[in-house]
Simulated assay, not measured.
Amino acid sequence: MASRIAIVTGASTGIGFETAIALRAAGFIVYAGARRVDKMEPLKQHGITVLSLDVTSEESMVSAVRLVEAAHGRVHLLVNNAGYGSYGSLEEVPLDEGRRQFEVNVMGLARMTQLVIPGMRSAQSGRIINVASIGGKIYEPLGAWYHGTKFAVEGMSDSLRLELGPHGIDVVIIEPSGTDSEWGTIAGEGLLMASGGGPYREQAHIVAAALASTSGTGHVLSTPARIVASTIVRAAMAKRPRTRYPVGRGAWSVLAMRRILPDRAFDTVFWNFYRRLAG
């Protein structure tokens, strides 16, 4: 196991940070990548190699993968975790921001995957783990751009599983609920900047409060990032992994409710729940 090489993107905080540590503890040689290199300094204490990695930069992605392949020949495991949540009404969020949301959450994931596939295909083995979200199965008002990206990751991953399976490459989807990271707070702040003072302000304040409820230990929808990380490690080490792993507080119940309820009924139940979260 010590010879297995892993790249984790978006490793400066939260799920990516904890996943890098958990994979190293499980025996992987880990390369952790993110734009905020200073945030990853503590990872070095665990024997993890830190990379400057921007998933919107072709040069950065190519350089990172080439560095790892030059040192070890190939990548055994890619964890596509880099991403963020862009919220706001579709009317008010500039198209440039919508494009950036897709560039980070979808195109960066796709390009990193492209770069590691040849080595995996040549070896007839490898695993790609894409961190999606329960937001790839459900939806929120003022979350069109974000949910659009996560729905895209779900569909892309399912297609990849079929096309890469004959080449010995597994593709796995992780579907977390809210985690105790800065993600929800940052997403809520962005939402209020985009739509907090206009015609969608009432919805914006409710959704921002709901997003904040996923940030920080002890909040109603908050799951420790290390729990998601342990699920990623389980998926990485399974002989025959499941195709998708919902994880976190409320993940299974929310997804079950989405399957069972008609759209209009789900709209009502979910929106009422958000109102209660907002107080």
Rank of each mutant, 00 (worst) to 15 (best):
A2H: 11
I5P: 01
A6L: 00
I15A: 05
A22D: 06
L23G: 01
R24Q: 15
F28Q: 01
Y31W: 05
A34K: 07
R36E: 15
R36V: 12
V37P: 04
K39F: 14
E41D: 14
P42W: 08
K44I: 07
G47N: 04
G47H: 07
T49M: 07
S52K: 11
L53H: 09
D54K: 00
D54H: 07
S57I: 02
S60F: 04
M61W: 04
V62S: 10
S63D: 14
A64K: 03
A70G: 15
A71L: 13
A71N: 10
L77F: 01
N81E: 05
A82N: 09
G83M: 10
Y84I: 00
L90C: 08
P94N: 06
V116P: 04
V116M: 09
P118T: 10
I129Y: 07
V131W: 11
V131T: 05
A132R: 01
S133K: 01
S133R: 09
G135I: 03
G136P: 04
Y139W: 14
E140Q: 10
A144W: 11
A144H: 09
A144K: 03
H147V: 11
E154F: 02
G155M: 08
M156E: 02
D158H: 06
L160S: 04
L162G: 13
E163F: 01
H167K: 09
V172H: 06
I174D: 05
I174P: 00
P176S: 02
G178E: 06
E182Y: 00
T185F: 15
A187P: 03
G188A: 03
L191Y: 13
L192Y: 12
A194Y: 11
Y200R: 02
E202R: 12
E202D: 15
Q203E: 15
I206A: 14
I206K: 12
T214K: 09
T214C: 13
T217S: 14
G218H: 01
V220R: 06
P224E: 11
S230Q: 14
V233T: 07
A238R: 00
A238W: 00
K239F: 08
R240F: 08
R244K: 11
P246K: 06
P246E: 06
G250V: 10
W252F: 14
S253W: 07
V254W: 03
L255Y: 00
M257N: 04
L261E: 06
T268K: 13
N272M: 12
A278I: 03
